[in-house]
Amino acid sequence: MRTSYSVSDIMTCALARMLKDGETVFHGVSSHLPMVAIQLAKHMQAPNLVHLNIPGGVNPSSLKKASYSSAGADLVTGAEAYFPLDEVFDLSMRGKLDVAFLGGVQFDVHGNVNASVIGDYRQPKVRLPGGAGSAVLIPTAKKIILWRTKHDKRTFVERVDFVTTRGNLWKIVTPLCIFEFRHGKLHLDSIHPTSSLEEVRANTGFELLYDEIKYTPPPSKRELDVLKKIDPYEYRALEFQLNR
């Protein structure tokens, strides 16, 4: 009998498995999936991982009272130390930030990321928040992991409407699959067990590149048990609710 799990569980576990013991990892605002994934990794394969976040908490003790924004004072209260955002940028520029979790709204096969506008820049249909810290972190962090809780042809496009940032990507995790950036292009790395090659292709606006068809391992019972413990209010699912 298959253990029950959700797409948010699959994405959280996939993100957590990408982290190694001893790495220093940062997430920003509206980042519930990475926030929970970091804690999952610390309880699984990476107990010595260092968790940094926007409000400046280093290794927050618990997510059970984490704020809705994933950037509240809760992540500082009970943390091991205080490390403000400007120091995170400096850390990354010195080559000492191992992983940064960042978002975006549009992506293309060449690894360009748009978080600025939809449509023409001077007369946009939608004006987005912009790159913020991405302009510093994407070029300088050792590994950039992007995630997006929507996967459709408006998100994964032939060419982004505006290049907010580019290059130095590693993985993009979506509700359907994982992409890996290599040789200057996005390649299909694995398909989630709840999806299929046909579904990924139908919802991607560029031609899929892949060497072989692989599937993302489903969450294990231990991973699901740990998720219930560290994220009892299922903050990892909030981003899906916001995108309805």
Rank of each mutant, 00 (worst) to 15 (best):
99 V>I: 06
102 L>V: 08
125 K>I: 13
127 R>L: 13
119 G>K: 08
132 A>C: 14
152 D>Q: 02
122 R>S: 14
164 T>W: 02
167 G>T: 02
99 V>K: 00
145 I>R: 02
133 G>A: 15
131 G>Q: 09
160 V>M: 10
155 T>M: 12
114 N>S: 07
168 N>E: 11
158 E>F: 11
127 R>E: 09
122 R>A: 14
114 N>L: 08
137 L>T: 01
159 R>V: 11
151 H>G: 05
141 A>W: 00
134 S>Q: 11
144 I>D: 02
125 K>L: 15
150 K>Q: 14
127 R>H: 10
152 D>L: 04
98 D>Q: 09
108 D>K: 05
123 Q>E: 14
148 R>D: 09
95 G>Y: 07
107 F>D: 01
133 G>V: 08
157 V>F: 08
147 W>R: 09
158 E>S: 13
153 K>V: 04
128 L>G: 04
104 G>C: 05
153 K>C: 05
138 I>L: 12
134 S>K: 11
164 T>G: 09
149 T>V: 14
146 L>W: 01
100 A>S: 13
130 G>Y: 03
121 Y>F: 14
116 S>L: 07
99 V>G: 01
155 T>F: 12
128 L>C: 12
141 A>E: 00
157 V>C: 01
125 K>Y: 14
136 V>S: 04
105 V>Q: 06
168 N>P: 07
99 V>C: 03
134 S>M: 15
117 V>W: 02
138 I>Q: 07
115 A>F: 14
156 F>T: 00
132 A>V: 06
107 F>L: 10
146 L>V: 03
123 Q>A: 15
100 A>T: 05
154 R>W: 06
150 K>R: 15
154 R>T: 14
148 R>E: 07
142 K>D: 06
95 G>F: 02
114 N>C: 10
116 S>T: 15
116 S>W: 03
109 V>S: 14
150 K>W: 10
121 Y>N: 09
141 A>V: 13
136 V>A: 11
136 V>Y: 08
116 S>D: 13
149 T>H: 05
147 W>S: 11
127 R>G: 04
106 Q>H: 12
163 V>H: 10
115 A>L: 13
108 D>Q: 09
136 V>C: 06
126 V>C: 11
168 N>T: 06
166 R>H: 13
135 A>Q: 10
146 L>Y: 08
120 D>H: 13
122 R>F: 13
